[in-house]
Design a protein around this nucleic acid. Structure first.
Ligand SMILES: [Mn+2]
Ligand SMILES: [Mn+2]
Ligand SMILES: [Mn+2]
Ligand SMILES: [Mn+2]
Lengths: 159, 159
DNA sequence: CAAACAGTTTAGCCTTGGCTAACAATGTTG
DNA sequence: CAACATTGTTAGCCAAGGCTAAACTGTTTG
């Protein structure tokens, strides 16, 4: 449960960087990341489907495969999963649509994604880089940090 | 290869948010994230082993399991992989050590992790939240963004 | 209206990263 | 030094998320 004991003296000033966090806190960090990894691909799919519906009027499996640079078989399998999760509705060989729950997830994900992207641009990151970084970072940003990012971006825009 | 055609008028002002990026750029975003996911767990292990060696003098499988909140079997299996990748050396039932390549990876990961963590704190994020966010974000931050974060943190500290 | 083409699905394979249960080795202590 | 506690390994299971190949459906067009 606890770490093996450090055998160094108890009070000597550390020559190293930050100390290790307490075990429970450290474990929480990793657990939160593992958790995010379970949902992030789902979020990206739902967000993309929402964007395609908004900007193109329809969301076809082939478009998703191209946009994600993934095989159509992979998309087809994922769509089955999204169906089981009741996030999308689909008739065979037809465009996809989002359920109520799917729309909610798409909006939330899109909003969060935009906050992160706009924040990175406000920081001075080039657009192409900001887009790449935001695609990964978005799933690992807490609400607290998100708020701070949003305020930062607004401040930046006023000046 | 290309999206299905939008049938909306060509020049009408969009009532929606940001337009979709070009397919190739969009695909690059997702591909970069998938790539990061292949290496991030490895990086976390190597970084943690380095930290344990630095702060505790040894890195035992049980400590890793506790710190990551994961079973010992999972750690044991991952250590075999790290061995195959020649990032760690291990004798059965003995502490782990990092190879040259492992030390290099540990340093790089630790440095990047610290930049992200210190940046979040400089932004005003509470320590516990910053630690959680940094654990996930670190793997999705480009060198360009990392530079900007570091400069931001330094600026913040001067004032 | 029949082909050809484009899009979708299914089957079967692989790797990663989790888990539990059982067993083996090592360390501690009465 | 024997028993017990801790630590490490192995085996076998599972789900997720990739892939290719092949079959099937729907659309376009000669
Ligand atoms: Mn997204
Ligand atoms: Mn994303
Ligand atoms: Mn890290
Ligand atoms: Mn990490």
């Amino acid at each position: 449960m606890t770490d093996s004991k450090p055998n160094a003296s108890l009070t000597a000033p550390s020559i190293h960087g930050d100390a290790l966090p307490p075990v429970e806190q450290h474990a929480q960090q990793y657990a939160t990341v593992r958790n995010a990894h379970e949902t992030e691909l789902i979020e990206d799919y739902v967000e993309l489907i929402g964007d395609l519906l908004t900007h193109r009027g329809e969301a076809r499996a082939a478009d998703i495969a191209n946009r994600m640079a993934v095989s159509q078989a992979t998309v087809s399998k994922m769509i089955r999963r999204l169906n089981e999760l009741e996030l999308v509705t689909s008739k065979p060989y037809r465009s996809l649509f989002l359920t109520e729950a799917g729309q909610k997830m798409a909006e939330t994900s899109r909003a969060r994604h935009d906050i992160v992207l706009h924040f990175l641009r406000a920081l001075g990151v080039k657009d192409a880089t900001a887009r790449i970084d935001a695609e990964g970072m978005e799933h690992h940003v807490s609400d607290e940090t998100l708020d701070i990012m949003q305020r930062f971006t607004e401040q930046q825009q006023k000046s």
